[in-house]
Computed example of a mutant assay.
Amino acid sequence: MSPKLTKTIIGAVIAIALAAAVSYGLVSQQTADQIQSKANQTLQNDQGSLGPGQSQPPVAPSNSIPQAPGQPGTSPQPPAPAPKQ
């Protein structure tokens, strides 16, 4: 597996784990943003050690954490009834 793909998968797993932690109220959104920011910096710094000839992709901004649907304790809106014919 290429190093670029490995780092992308790691970043995605971190983002999903943080979104779940925020969703269940284990950490605050601010804490999740800080952790994601540090993870992005670490992954970016590791990419600097790639061999010559390998380009570094742009790093996503730290506020690109997927948001969990709704806050804990709130219920989602029920779907609208289909029109009868």
Rank of each mutant, 00 (worst) to 15 (best):
M1D: 09
M1A: 07
S2C: 07
K4C: 02
K4S: 12
K4H: 07
K7S: 13
K7Y: 13
K7I: 10
T8S: 14
G11H: 02
A12V: 05
A12Q: 14
V13R: 15
V13A: 13
V13C: 08
A15T: 10
I16T: 12
I16N: 08
A17S: 15
A17D: 13
A20W: 12
A21P: 08
A21M: 15
V22Q: 03
V22M: 09
V22Y: 07
V22H: 13
S23K: 15
S23A: 15
L26T: 06
V27C: 05
V27I: 15
Q29K: 12
Q29W: 12
Q30H: 12
Q30L: 12
T31C: 03
T31G: 02
T31A: 13
D33K: 09
D33A: 13
Q36L: 15
Q36N: 14
A39L: 05
A39E: 02
Q41A: 15
T42A: 12
T42D: 06
T42V: 03
L43G: 07
L43I: 11
Q44W: 00
Q44C: 03
N45T: 06
D46V: 00
Q47F: 00
Q47T: 02
Q47Y: 00
G48E: 06
G48W: 00
L50S: 09
L50C: 01
L50F: 03
P52K: 03
P52I: 08
G53H: 04
Q54W: 01
S55W: 00
S55C: 00
Q56V: 13
Q56M: 05
P57Y: 01
V59D: 00
P61C: 05
S62V: 01
S62T: 05
N63C: 01
N63I: 01
I65T: 07
I65R: 08
I65G: 06
Q67N: 09
Q67V: 11
A68Q: 05
Q71C: 05
P72S: 10
G73N: 05
G73D: 09
G73F: 07
G73W: 11
Q77R: 12
Q77K: 12
P78D: 10
P78W: 10
P79L: 14
P79R: 13
P79N: 13
P79D: 10
A80K: 13
P81M: 08
A82Y: 07
P83T: 08
P83E: 08
K84N: 09
K84E: 07
Q85M: 10
Q85D: 08
